[in-house]
Design a protein around this nucleic acid. Structure first.
Length: 566
RNA sequence: GCGCCUGUGGCUCAACCGGAUAGAGCAACGGCCUUCUAAGCCGUAGGUUGCAGGUUCGAUUCCUGCCGGGCGCGCCA
């Protein structure tokens, strides 16, 4: 419907521009007025057009209205306020959406295949310990986004980049080995910087069960480190996968940084860049913003990222000649491009904000694609306990695991809680509050609405009644304001979902659900359904079915369950 | 110092690509369960959208400057 209106109006605008010999393209937008008194749809086009035509907006609106060929469902139009064109549909045309929903069922809101391959990378937490609450936000947003984009026809691959190479793996093996030594009875202290968490001790025990300490210590240090690292990483990834699993999150691809190094692709890349004169040997200025004691200017292999908008050129090799994290990361993103993805989207924590530009710069140099990868920065989760801030750090061992929270309040509550806010806003998460007052979580508000409807439908059937086909139902019984509000929301759901995908903002779906649930609760309270005359009951049940369907569809897309009873 | 994000009732957040009268929840106060789930509903109170300019017919939204909060700024990852 909206599309038809747009087309009609656009035609009139184009004609008008042509007639007035204004060479400009302007595309019409229709929005839903906040107040019902302003019609079913409203257009602000006249106000945008008027200055270009040197007219008064209301006059322009009139000119447009004189020529528009509206579809038959348009009852009337009016010019209002400074020049809005308000459109009113024929009574009853709004019921079409109910027919659509009942007919489409689970697929209401979905879109057909777009033939666009998207690589969505998220979580990518270091395999050095279980996930903490901060990781959870990125995990949930990324997962929800993948579902939302999938629903809109994108071909989404969900990818986890395992940082299973580099210094933190050394720290991990050192930590484990120290614990193993301690378990063997040695009086050893955990070195500065090692991971103090309990989970390391668990791992140490597992390793000692595999073979006795004597066997481990018989190995050369290199050999031992390699073996320990392999097992430790595998173990940590298992933990992480389990943590994700309880949140209903799974990945298509786990991409290993180590494998990338081993394949020689990183060195290859550097060689290739050198050939293209994109790297050079130079010195970096000392870092700004904080005192650096041991800064020594050294000659390094640098990538000319400044040519693509970065602040300084970035090092690809450390002093010892090994590749930097950045070098591997470029190779990784290049690899994704080679794998044929049309788009790369990365969900990163805000602490990686400064890193975005250099990766994009590198990708621009390598592929000429601008804005690749697209990065969604998730702002930090400020964890508090009883109102007091808790610093989360794997190194300090002061973190609250994601698992702990999920076990306490459940996947649905955690997911929805993290999805109700925009990614750009910081999030306070009080552990105690989350556990105690989980009932306040808006997810229950939404699920409750669904459960109420389910009960109604269930009772209706157990009492031996049937649900009528939509053509038998007296739809005009759904003409009061409250019904109309609900129907309008149902109508807007596909657009909300589409916007949520294009803008990559899952919170829109969550917000929509809360609004719809609010309407439902209000309606439910005000109107009886089962006790009414059969024709009234049938009509209202139809509305209920449609609402339940949309709630269920939207919850599913957010990865949240829709229980039939609570 | 520079870059990114952010500032909306006491608190947590909405407001569709700039639209008409800025909306919810929590907290406060007052009501509603012999009837489909009170995890709910209805009402009252609470706002100069951080401040100052600018662009526009029109600004919470865009631009500039200031103020406040967060994150980041070597060869760590």
């Amino acid at each position: 419907m909206k599309q038809q209106l747009l087309t009609a109006l656009q035609q009139a605008v184009d004609d008008l521009l042509l007639a007035q010999q204004v060479e400009q393209n302007i595309h019409v937008q229709l929005s839903y007025p906040r107040h019902a008194q302003h019609g079913d749809y409203t257009a602000n086009i006249a106000m945008q057009l008027a200055p270009k035509l040197k007219q008064k907006p209301r006059d322009t609106a009139q000119l447009l209205l004189d020529t528009v060929q509206w579809p038959a469902q348009v009852e009337k139009t009016e010019i209002a306020g400074p020049g809005f064109i308000n459109i009113y549909l024929v009574q009853g045309s709004e019921f079409e959406v109910l027919r659509q929903i009942i007919h489409a069922g689970e697929s209401y809101g979905l879109q057909s295949k777009k033939n666009e391959k998207v690589c969505l990378e998220f979580v990518s937490a270091n395999p050095t310990g279980p996930m903490h609450v901060g990781h959870g936000r990125g995990a949930i947003v990324g997962d929800a986004l993948s579902r939302i984009m999938h629903s809109q026809g994108y071909d989404v691959v969900r990818e986890y980049y395992m940082n299973d190479a580099g210094a933190q793996i050394g720290v991990l093996t050192r930590s484990v080995w120290t614990r193993m030594c301690q378990l063997d009875g040695q009086d050893l202290r955990l070195e500065e910087g090692c991971y103090p968490g309990e989970y390391i001790i668990d791992l140490a025990k597992i390793l000692l069960e595999q073979q006795p300490f004597s066997a481990w210590s018989a190995l050369s240090q290199d050999e031992r480190d390699t073996q320990l690292a392999d097992i430790a990483i595998a173990h940590m990834m298992t933990l992480i996968r389990e943590d994700l699993k309880v949140l209903n999150i799974e990945f298509d691809v786990f991409f290993s940084e180590q494998a990338l190094h081993a394949s020689g692709k990183v060195q290859e890349l550097i060689a290739q860049l050198r050939q293209q004169d994109l790297v050079y040997d130079g010195t970096l200025p000392p870092p700004k913003g904080k005192e650096v004691k041991d800064y020594k200017p050294t000659v390094q292999c640098l990538f000319r990222t400044t040519q693509y908008g970065d602040d300084v050129d970035r090092a690809l090799q450390k002093q010892d000649g090994s590749a930097t994290y950045f070098a591997a990361d470029i190779a990784y993103h290049k690899d994704k491009d080679d794998r044929g993805f049309d788009r790369q989207i990365n969900v990163w924590g805000a602490d990686h904000g400064g890193y975005v530009r250099r990766v994009q710069a590198a990708m621009q140099a390598l592929t000429t694609k601008v804005d690749t990868p697209e990065v969604i920065l998730i702002q930090m989760v400020n964890l508090t306990q009883d109102g007091k801030p808790v610093r989360m750090s794997k190194r300090a061992g002061t973190f609250v695991t994601l698992r702990e929270v999920v076990d306490a309040v459940g996947s649905d509550a955690v997911r929805f809680n993290f999805l109700t806010r925009r990614c750009e806003s910081q999030l306070d998460f009080d552990l105690q509050l989350a556990k105690n007052q989980s009932m306040e979580n808006p997810v229950y508000y939404v699920q409750y609405a669904y459960a109420r409807i389910s009960t109604l439908l269930n009772r209706w059937e157990t009492e031996g009644h049937e649900l009528h086909e939509i053509k038998q139902i007296e739809l005009h019984l759904l003409s009061d304001d409250q019904c109309q509000d609900i129907i309008k929301k149902l109508l807007q759901y596909p657009e909300i979902l589409a916007n949520s995908a294009t803008k990559q903002e899952p919170y829109r779906v969550a917000t929509f659900l809360m609004n719809l649930a609010s309407d439902l609760h209000s309606y439910y309270h005000k109107h009886r359904i089962l006790g009414e005359a059969p024709n009234v009951a049938q009509a209202r049940l139809l509305l209920m079915r449609a609402v339940a369907q949309v709630i269920s569809n939207a919850l599913t897309i957010l990865g949240v369950s829709a229980p039939k009873s609570m």
